[in-house]
Each structure stands twice: as structure tokens, then as C-alpha cells.
Simulated assay, not measured.
Amino acid sequence: MAAAVHIPVSEYLRTTYRPDRDYVDGELKERNVGEQPHAHIQAIITGIFREHRSDWGVRALPEQRFQITPTRFRIPDVTVLRNTDPKDAIISFAPLLCVEILSKDDTLGELQERVDDYATMGVENIWAIDPWKRAAYYASRQGFARTDDGMLRIEHSPITISLAEVFAELDEF
């Protein structure tokens, strides 16, 4: 196995990667993307937040760079900001919500490091959606808790998303 190549933060920030990559303490980390179920769920979730942006006071951004620490950058599949949040090029504050969509070969165990990074930054709402198993979870440092009623919610807000509707739309095509 080849040794990891470390690059400085400045090089990461001035380089365009396709697809974009996480940067963790000097190492580039590839993200599993590119399969239709992943991309479609990402579009559906982003679309739901866009449709309700005025009512919910939010804006949803797919694949937005998010700075956890000076040497750690993550790119959630969907980041949801409050309308009052700054419009910085790279997010360096805790957004309202980070959504991770599992790709075919992802596991919840592998996702835990990303969840821990979001929690370190102060993100209180983290969702993980598995289009392959038709499941969704609330994620935290303690692990993953499956929704018990088929809905994803953000406490103390009007934000509620029906998984049945999300997965029905996924199955349309």
C-alpha cells in the first residue's frame, strides 16, 4: 500500500478536484459519489429544502465545502443553512443540518468519522440516508438511530420530511 501524500491546506484550497474531496490533516480523502440512487436522493432532499426555503427559512447547498478545523475540510452531500447565516465561500460555522447519503459500498461505521467531525464543529442535526436499504438515521457521536416513524425532523422547527415520499420519488424512475 502506497504511503499517503500530504499536501498543504493552501494547495487544497486552490486546486479544483472532480469530484471535490475532503481534506483531513493533510490528506485528500475521496468521497463515494456518482451512482444514480445517491445522486437522485441528493437532488430530492435539496429540492425539498428549496421548495420550502421561505417557509422554513433555509437554503440547501449540495456538496459545499465545510471547514471543521484549520486542517480538516468536509463536503456533506447536502448542507442546510439558515437564511440568516453568512454566505461565505467555505462554511466555517455550524450549519443547521448536514446530510450524508450513503453510496452502495459505504457503511455507517465508515461514516462515523465524518459525523464526529460535524459534531465537533457544533452541528446539532446530522442525517444519514441509505437509498439502497431505504433507511434513514439521525447521526451523532453516539452512533446512528433509525427514525421510528418514517419521518426526518429538526426539533423546534417546522422541518419534517417524509421518507415514504422521498423513496417513492426515487422509485419513479
Rank of each mutant, 00 (worst) to 15 (best):
R59Y: 00
P62I: 10
I45M: 14
P8F: 08
P8A: 00
S92V: 04
D25G: 11
A128S: 07
K104D: 02
A139C: 15
D106I: 09
Q142L: 11
D22H: 13
T84P: 06
A168E: 10
R82Q: 14
L163I: 05
E63N: 13
L97P: 01
I101P: 07
N83W: 10
W132R: 03
P86C: 11
Q36H: 13
H6T: 00
V9S: 04
R72F: 07
F66M: 15
P131G: 06
L97E: 08
G57C: 06
N125A: 06
I91R: 07
P131M: 09
P158I: 07
Y118A: 02
T15F: 01
M121H: 10
A145V: 14
P8Q: 00
Y23G: 04
R134Q: 15
R21S: 08
I101F: 01
A128K: 03
P76R: 13
I101M: 06
N125P: 00
L108A: 09
I68T: 01
Y12K: 10
G143S: 08
S10N: 10
L97M: 00
V78M: 06
V24P: 10
I68P: 04
R18D: 15
V80Y: 08
E30W: 03
E165A: 10
F167Q: 08
E27A: 02
D117K: 12
L111T: 12
D106S: 05
Y138A: 14
G47V: 08
P76Y: 12
Y137T: 01
R31V: 06
S103D: 02
I161E: 07
I41G: 00
V33W: 03
R153I: 11
R65F: 03
W56T: 08
E110D: 15
D55K: 15
M1P: 11
R153T: 12
A43W: 12
V5G: 00
P37W: 07
L81N: 11
D106Y: 04
T107L: 09
A164E: 14
D20R: 12
V78I: 11
C98F: 05
F93C: 07
D22P: 06
I41S: 04
N83T: 13
L61W: 12
V33Q: 08
N32F: 07
Q142C: 05
S140P: 05
E155W: 02
E110H: 14
P8R: 07
T84V: 11
T147C: 08
A139L: 13
V58N: 14
M1G: 15
L102K: 05
L102G: 05
V123N: 03
Q64C: 04
P62E: 09
I154T: 04
P19C: 05
E35H: 09
Q67H: 00
Y138T: 11
D116A: 13
A136K: 07
W127Q: 00
E113G: 09
E165K: 14
P76S: 09
D106F: 05
V9I: 12
I90V: 15
F66H: 15
I91M: 05
D77L: 08
V80K: 11
A135M: 15
A89G: 11
T147D: 05
G57V: 12
A139Y: 09
Q42A: 13
M1I: 10
L102W: 02
A139D: 07
L96R: 03
I90T: 15
A3Q: 08
D116T: 14
H6C: 01
P158M: 08
P158V: 06
I101S: 02
A136F: 00
E27Q: 12
N32H: 11
V9Y: 04
D22L: 05
P158W: 04
T160D: 03
V80G: 12
Y17C: 05
